Amino acid sequence: MKSHTSRTITDPIQLKEQLKQIRNQDYCVCISEFIENMVSISSPIRDSVGQVISAITLIAPTQRMDEDRIVFYTHKVVKTAKEISRQFGFLK
């Protein structure tokens, strides 16, 4: 696996564990994993049967995203993804 930054996960076992965690919590926060000094927060958008059909992502420079802001915006991104999913008929 190709490394994009010093924080890119290249170990398949570690990546598999992170993907498992992402599925369980229904969001992902990446800090400088793909682009240095950038934070991304993503949550899936699901259709009426629960299939992931898209995602919503917020991206910002790390200097604007301290830990409190990451937590705040993670809640906003997840809430928005769930609202959009409900519009597609996902009721869970």
Rank of each mutant, 00 (worst) to 15 (best):
M1E: 04
M1F: 10
M1Q: 08
K2M: 10
S3G: 14
S3F: 04
S3C: 14
T5H: 00
T5S: 04
T5E: 03
S6W: 08
S6D: 14
T8N: 00
T8V: 05
I9V: 14
I9W: 00
I9G: 00
D11K: 01
P12G: 08
P12E: 09
I13V: 13
L15N: 07
L15K: 13
L15F: 08
K16V: 00
K16T: 08
E17M: 11
E17H: 12
Q18K: 13
Q18M: 12
L19D: 10
K20S: 13
Q21C: 10
I22F: 07
I22E: 12
R23I: 05
N24M: 10
N24T: 09
N24V: 08
Q25E: 14
Q25W: 07
Q25L: 09
D26K: 11
D26V: 08
D26G: 09
Y27P: 04
Y27A: 02
Y27V: 01
Y27W: 07
Y27F: 15
Y27L: 08
V29H: 05
I31Q: 13
I31D: 08
I31T: 09
I31P: 06
S32N: 04
S32Q: 04
I35Y: 10
E36R: 13
N37E: 15
S40N: 08
I41F: 06
S42V: 03
S42G: 03
S43W: 04
I45K: 01
R46L: 11
D47F: 01
S48W: 07
S48F: 09
S48P: 00
S48A: 09
V49H: 03
Q51D: 09
Q51N: 07
Q51T: 11
I53V: 15
I53Q: 06
S54R: 00
S54P: 02
S54C: 08
A55Q: 06
I56F: 01
T57I: 05
T57Q: 05
L58M: 04
L58C: 04
L58Q: 09
L58R: 06
L58D: 07
I59T: 15
I59V: 14
A60K: 12
P61D: 04
P61V: 05
T62I: 07
M65K: 00
V71G: 10
Y73Q: 01
Y73L: 11
Y73N: 05
T74H: 03
K76V: 12
V78F: 06
V78G: 01
V78N: 09
K79L: 11
K79S: 15
T80D: 05
T80M: 14
T80K: 13
A81C: 02
S85E: 07
S85P: 02
R86Y: 12
F88A: 03
F90N: 00
F90Q: 02
L91C: 07
